[in-house]
Design a protein around this nucleic acid. Structure first.
Lengths: 109, 109
DNA sequence: TCAATATCTCAAAAGATGTTGAAATACTGG
DNA sequence: CCAGTATTTCAACATCTTTTGAGATATTGA
């Protein structure tokens, strides 16, 4: 995860429809959901859904595979968890462990 | 952390200068840095720096306190780590533990 | 192959966001 | 209290993003 990837990922997550899609796909698990089913869950038109799914895929946050007539989207878990890792790198000059939740205790007064 | 807060947070982090500021302040630790020092580190004008610092503070990602003539900004660690928690909630319908890094193993094929 | 289904692409309009430079405000140390 | 320092505010402009609706493309089952 580098700065450009992180910017793209955060940009993708900063839009209501896209944030909801990601959370939906995170909940759905590795089997994922067809584009049409995602759009229906969002109450969004097919072009809107397609636009946001493409945006998320370009950012590396979700993946797609074709299955018969449908395109199935699923969450890219490693990319998602890599985001906070990137953000918290060198936290407090290394004096704390954000992953182990020791950051709040060590770093917050 | 609710959806609106998450959207504001991700929106803040999706801009180059702001992402760099947050990472700088994460590294700086709880003592934080004066607005002027942040701006100098970014090579940004005072108005640009102020705009982005305000944006980040409104989103809850950083905090400010006055100290003599300066305003000192510091990272809001709990808000930062709360972001991925929000994103990963109900991951795989509860079949995995994203915090303990078991998600990739359990959820990814 | 053909009809039906599923998804994507495109361009134009609307909306949101970032940058700039000048001016205003807030605070402190002498 | 005043000069100097630190930071914020503002408005105009430029840029980027999202929505819309119509049409194009891709795939499959009969």
């Amino acid at each position: 995860m580098n700065e450009l990837q992180a910017l793209a990922a955060f940009g993708s997550l900063s839009q209501e429809t896209r944030l909801r899609i990601v959370r939906l796909l995170v909940k759905a698990g590795p089997d994922g959901m067809a584009a049409g089913a995602v759009g229906e869950a969002m109450g969004a038109s097919s072009s809107k859904t397609s636009f946001h799914l493409s945006h998320l895929e370009r950012a590396g946050l979700i993946r797609s595979r074709r299955e018969a007539r449908s395109i199935i989207y699923s969450a890219a878990y490693p990319a998602l968890s890599g985001l906070i890792e990137f953000l918290m790198k060198d936290c407090c000059q290394g004096r704390c462990d954000p992953a182990g939740n020791a950051c709040a205790e060590t770093c917050e007064a």
